[in-house]
Amino acid sequence: MKVAVIGCGSMGNVHAHAYAKMNDVELTAVCDIQMERAEALAERTGAVAYPSFEHMLAEAEFDVISITLPSYLHKEYTIRAAEAGKHVISEKPLALTLEDAQAMIECCDRQGVRLFVGHVVRFFPEYAQIKQVIDQGKIGRVAVVHTKRRGSHPGLASPWFKEADKSGGILFDLMIHDIDYLRWAVGEVKSVYAKSHTDQDLEFAFVTLQFENGAVANLEVCWGYPGSFHTGIEVAGSKGVVRNNSESSNSVRVRQISSDKPGQAPVVEVPKSPGAKSPYELELEHYIACIRTGDTAIVTAQDAYQAIEIAKAAADSAKTGKVVSLQASRVQEVTK
């Protein structure tokens, strides 16, 4: 299987390195309009660098393409790749509107290519285990869930994150991880209530989801958090509680004295939770395997569509101050 990557930012690097490590996959091409980024990644992965999609399509051989571009470009390149007969693995969110997501799904169907979306939280072992614990009935009926996902503002490194029409903002870019995970682990969402705050340095939101099965979840996300990136989840049920906090489940901490004057300078701490394979490697290997076997993926493009629907409901609720019922919106769609 030959794979290409378009968009050589941080996620493009993650995808390319994951492919480069796979035995039965060949990373043939990486592409970025900033050619130096493509070249740097090509050098480290053994791929060929291209400055444009056209160029890459004309010259490189590949069956699958990872689209790790800023979110507002996912639609255009997914459709161009699908029309060229390539299977697509798009980073999340699939798109910034339901219409775009629908168009992408329909185009890939029409072209007979697979479409996968990088909802990687389902591949984090701690989150996969929590889903398993719920399914095994160990905590009884799920009642109250909390998730959090906080870190520094990605807009500091990549300004497009601060432009809502390019990233969708924190609900579409960051909270969508927990939204997708909770649909998988808890069930379908009935209604959404959201409060959010956005300024130049800080973006965050509290979102409460009510589920069809009666459970309730409060999701917290923050960009601009004064501290390192971390996540947390607690699921409380009628027979127990399961939870994880990424800060306390790091298995390795490297602490380095950061200057020539020991004892005076701050210490740089890099906490890590290493595994034999990263969640991204597990995710991409699974998608590649699904392409080979034709199996349905753990997370489908339709799941990605529904996560966008909930993120949009949250954005609407934050704007209007009202509870947004997803059943009502589904009924409206049907009657249109």
Partner: peptide, 15 residues
């Protein structure tokens, strides 16, 4: 200012 609060009696006997 906005706030949110979980008020649940959600701690199991094993907690």
């Amino acid at each position: 200012v906005f706030g949110v609060l979980d008020t649940s009696w959600s701690r199991p006997k094993s907690f």
